[in-house]
Write a protein that binds this DNA or RNA. Structure first.
Lengths: 156, 156
DNA sequence: TATTGTTATACTCTATAACTATA
DNA sequence: TATAGTTATAGAGTATAACAATA
């Protein structure tokens, strides 16, 4: 099918193959989550809030490389869907203490089940050892990131 | 810095780490290409055209998972920058035969040099064997893709 | 002075639908 | 009837700038 077309300079580039593999994963993720009302980023936010009860929007966003400004609509959606609650943060009255609701916990469990099937599907060709190795290699690349997020407001 | 915040359900997901690693690569790629006038996707297109002289827009797009409709502006830009030429395809008068200009070849060489430095930077932690292994693993994931591109126009 | 959340806004990327001219 | 290129458009995702309340 693509047998005669060549990749040229792209062939040896890890960045290119990372992008392609990631987008293949994203496409299958979307299919796996159809009808669940959650997509990649909201699911990630929900996971972070579930694992860190009382976390605020900024910290959750920083964890995922999402800007403060973009967290607002994201959290609004999760709150509208009653998966997340904004509580008062006793120690900082500017911030909200985010927690997952009962429905949020259920939605997360459903999502995790779908995603496990999706991951199995995508990683069919790899042995357990290879999956572990891949996770390790990716983790070491992530840590090479320029900075978690230097954050906005250049002011001048 | 993020020492106390937990990933929760995200931690074991290859898809999540693929996404993060890919976006770290993309960010450093942008930095590496600053001032070159090329970004990720246009560079990929230029590479494909250079490696497959006379290829048409549709085939180049299919190779990269880019829709026909989105190839138009992409090729327009490369043509405006005089990096790519649209020639006549003798065997199919609907199609253009794309080729890289002399300036395009030079731009590609400059880009490849920048990108090599970028890849070295990002893969600093990995041994040669690990890089090869990573490319192999990613390649096997890519091949798991749902389909190169079933293409548009559902008609109903 | 710095930070949390917020609004407004813009730009890129990607997706769909419909059209034309060839095949 | 199917395919190559095109146009128009809509939706995500992500980026910056500025403001109020609080630290």
């Amino acid at each position: 099918m693509s047998g005669e077309t060549r990749l040229g300079a792209l062939a040896p580039l890890v960045g290119y193959h990372l992008r392609r593999a990631s987008s293949a994963f994203a496409a299958d993720f979307s299919a796996a989550m159809e009808g669940s009302g959650l997509r990649q980023v909201p699911f990630a936010v929900l996971s972070i809030v579930a694992a860190n009860p009382g976390i605020n929007q900024g910290a959750a966003g920083r964890m995922l490389g999402i800007k403060r400004a973009n967290m607002v609509a994201l959290i609004n959606d999760l709150v509208d869907k009653q998966l997340v609650e904004r509580g008062v943060d006793a120690s900082d009255r500017r911030a909200f203490a985010l927690t997952v609701t009962k429905a949020g916990t259920a939605a997360l469990a459903d999502a995790v089940a779908r995603i496990e099937a999706h991951e199995h599907r995508m990683l069919d060709d790899l042995s357990i050892e290879e999956r572990t190795l891949l996770l390790d290699l990716l983790g070491r690349i992530e840590r090479r990131s320029p900075a978690p997020e230097s954050d906005e407001n250049g002011e001048a």
